[in-house]
C-alpha cells in the first residue's frame, strides 16, 4: 500500500510540475492545486499507514491504543494545510481572473511588463 501511495504521490508531483511549466495561467492554478494535494498525501503516507483503523477513540475507551491506532497528528497537519491551500487557491483564482481582465491574455509569455527594465513598466 505504501508503495502504491508513493507512486501516486510521485505522479501527482510530476503532473503538477508539468502543469506549472505550461504557459497558460489556468493550468498554473491546477498545477498549484495538485501540488498541495501531493504534499498532503505525502504527509499522510510518510507518517506511516495503518490499515482499517481510525484515530477515533472507541466507545467505552478513554485512550487511543498506542501501538495499533494511526497517529492523529498528521491528520491535523493535513487539515491545517488543506485550509491554507483552500484560501490560497481561492485567492489565486481571483488573481488569475483579474489578470485576464486587465492584461487580456492567459499566456504567461505575454506578461513581461515587469521584466523589461523601465519603459514597459511605465506604460
Amino acid at each position: 500500500m505504501t508503495l502504491l501511495m508513493a507512486m501516486t504521490i510521485g505522479v501527482l508531483y510530476a503532473c503538477s510540475l508539468y502543469l506549472l511549466q505550461r504557459r497558460n495561467v489556468v493550468k498554473l492554478v491546477f498545477g498549484l492545486l495538485i501540488l498541495s494535494h501531493a504534499a498532503n498525501l505525502l504527509i499522510f503516507t510518510a507518517s506511516g499507514l495503518v490499515r482499517g483503523r481510525t484515530t477515533i477513540i472507541e466507545a467505552g475507551e478513554t485512550v487511543l491504543p498506542v501501538d495499533t491506532a494511526p497517529d492523529p497528528l498528521p491528520q491535523a497537519l493535513i487539515l491545517t494545510a488543506i485550509v491554507i491551500s483552500f484560501g490560497v487557491t481561492a485567492f489565486t483564482i481571483v488573481l488569475v481572473h483579474r489578470v485576464n481582465a486587465v492584461v487580456g491574455t492567459d499566456d504567461l509569455d505575454d506578461m513581461r511588463a515587469t521584466d523589461s527594465a523601465g519603459k514597459a513598466a511605465d506604460a
Binding site: 488573481l95 489578470v99 486587465v102 492584461v103 513581461r112 511588463a113 515587469t114
Partner: peptide
C-alpha cells in the same frame, strides 16, 4: 490591480 502589479503578483504567488 494595475498591469505590472498583477503580472508581478502572478510570478510572486507561483
Amino acid at each position: 490591480g494595475e498591469r505590472p502589479q498583477l503580472e508581478g503578483s502572478i510570478k510572486y504567488v507561483t
